[in-house]
Amino acid sequence: MSSLIVDRVSVRYPGAQGTALSDVSLTVPPESLVVALGPSGCGKTTLLNLIAGFIKPTSGTITLDAEPVTGPGAERGVVFQDDALLPWLNVGDNVAFGLRLRGVRQREREARAREVLQLVDLADHAGHKVWQLSGGMRQRVGLARALAANPQVLLMDEPFGALDAFIREQMQALLLRIWRETGKRVFLITHDIEEAVFLATDLVLMSPGPGRIVERLQLDFGRRHAAGEPVRSIKAEPDFIAVREHVLARVFAHRTNRAEGAIA
């Protein structure tokens, strides 16, 4: 089966106390939007860096469509919290950067950049300087850059964490629309509970000390929004609020347990 599979992966950083990630298994099947949620120190960033190939697991394996992951690669596109755009290139050239590295001809690159910029509602911004854009726009350029390389899976590292609440909600809606239109699998990490519950088809709750998965939920709020239901009516409905409060309680439960453990 073609999936992104994380199989019993553990990570111990040399010199560091404890285990960053302990025996984590995870599957990102086609058409899914998997969200890992947890407080800082729960290992969600480590997990994303593993899948992206930036770090190697101490034990366990990661495979994408039966191919083992051994390092960073263009089939796994990454969107960063800090957009990591290249300020000396304009918006269009940033989006086409991956294609340029592959030696794609300029006309083809420009056509592809136009296509993806259209997708993120920045069609008429190709010639703009990236350092003159707002935070939300830069984030959309980062998303377009990852999409332009046509990856098998999109990895998103707290992509909306630095944005204000209004822009963040717009970006969530945009992500769901792109997810539906392109059919790309997405693996996203966040510490924003509402964001996680709203976006995820598969929600993975993580907990620190050692970093591990403590609960998995299957949700459909994101799918429903992608199918046309308005954001506010979904986020205001009792079902959504109930799930949100459950997740909140779970995340806090581990916090209090740890605090009590520390006292005892």
Binding site: F54, G73, A84, F97, R100, A146
Partner: peptide, 19 residues
Amino acid sequence: TRLRAAQSLGASRWQLIRH
């Protein structure tokens, strides 16, 4: 992060230095 972004777009070591 800039280096990681370029690596995950498939940049080789030489391309990282140059670009």
